[in-house]
Design a protein around this nucleic acid. Structure first.
Lengths: 219, 219
DNA sequence: TACGTATTTGAATCACGATTCAACAAACAT
DNA sequence: ATGTTTGTTGAATCGTGATTCAAATACGTA
């Protein structure tokens, strides 16, 4: 038998298993057995903890969003220069590629949000939190004189989050010419207009063929 | 028995029935019987025309996109003033409200596009077509001297379509404070920066309380 | 009108996932 | 050690939707 776990531990595990299963099979198309398998349990055990599957799915989505948001915060905290902070924040809102799990899950929800109030509220709340995050960055940057806001921070924040969202969908759908780099540049182009700041991205350490791996790795 | 129809007619009807059924029950959660019922037929008849349901669903999505795009073209053709054309185009890309069927269907697809290549390609193609549409409007406006493009038309076009998409999702998810009007204004705020044109919206015929309905309705 | 074909029905069957639950096993308490 | 609680299994059952297909029906046509 699979190792026994305390109720609390198991629930956390199940939430994560549900998250993974939904990314593979869709937020609505996911089956109980797929979640059970992902958790290394049988369907009966899952039902023991979550008699109503919908509760588990909602908690999984909620957890996915928290994780997504927390990761963004982690990537940007510690950066004090407003321009750099804005650049990194924009970058952190985009999927790393078509298979980025976090964003994939959010995209799954978009359609369901039109039919399911709970999902709609979840997404709406996340959107607003992200807008608030951008507003803070913009306002601080303006206060420090780095940014010259032509429009109010709410407008700019909303548009920045909207652009992130939309390009996230494009990347996940494997657009031929819009990948993470191109999307970031497109969003930055807007941010430049809105802030009056050139927002130069740090010179990305350019991997030459010779330097693809440090030659002195074991030296 | 339901009236017999020619193969071609029935297929068109089925595509439309599938479209309606998907809007109600989700692009992936829709059932054969729901499509049959929507078409006023039995499941057997549906299978007679589409032995593989997936083909029908793909055709329905395709038809939904064509319809969406055609409706936009129809709304904007005949407008010669570039600024007005841009304003109307932006407006036409947004859902009329949370229950707008056309946009709802597109939103349904967003998540599936990450797992299904065909859906991904459909959405990507639609995106690119819309970008091209905006580019044409922008370029003509610039050539006529109405717009002063600060960035290239591809960048602006992509960002405009991206904003439309994202706010479409927000509206469909019933965001408390972002409805069609607010979304249009947010996108226009970007368009103003990008085109250097004030893009004043036509004074909307303001319905006063007294004039909510013509007093002389039956006169 | 009668024949042949295309379309649709409706019932039977199949397939699969959800749900239930008695039995079992692991952790815990005494 | 023993008993109790808790978590898990696995098989049985239920329900639902997809699929099949023979029969029925509408339509075109000769």
């Amino acid at each position: 038998m699979t190792q026994r776990k305390s109720k609390a531990d198991r629930r956390i595990e199940l939430i994560d298993a549900a998250r993974r299963a939904m990314i593979q099979h869709g937020a609505e198309g996911v089956h109980l057995n797929q979640i059970a398998e992902e958790a290394g349990l049988t369907s009966g055990a899952v039902l023991y903890h979550y008699p109503d599957l919908r509760d588990l799915l909602i908690e999984a989505h909620h957890a996915g969003m928290e994780r997504f948001y927390e990761q963004r915060l982690k990537k940007i905290n510690g950066i004090s220069d407003p321009a750099q902070k804005l650049i990194v924040t924009i970058r952190s809102g985009l999927p790393s590629g078509p298979d980025d799990a976090g964003v994939r899950l959010l995209c799954e929800l978009g359609g369901a949000a039109g039919r399911n109030r709970v999902y709609g509220t979840l997404l709406t709340t996340l959107f607003d939190r992200q807008v608030a995050l951008y507003q803070t960055i913009l306002e601080i940057g303006a206060a420090q004189g780095a940014f010259t806001l032509i429009q109010d921070s709410e407008t700019v924040g909303r548009n920045l989050v909207a652009l992130e969202d939309a390009y996230g969908y494009r990347i996940v759908a494997r657009h031929h010419t819009i990948g993470p780099d191109e999307a970031a540049e497109l969003i930055l182009d807007y941010a430049r207009l809105a802030t009056g700041h050139p927002l130069k991205t740090l010179p990305v350490p350019h991997r030459t063929t010779a330097a693809r791996r440090p030659a002195t790795r074991n030296a």
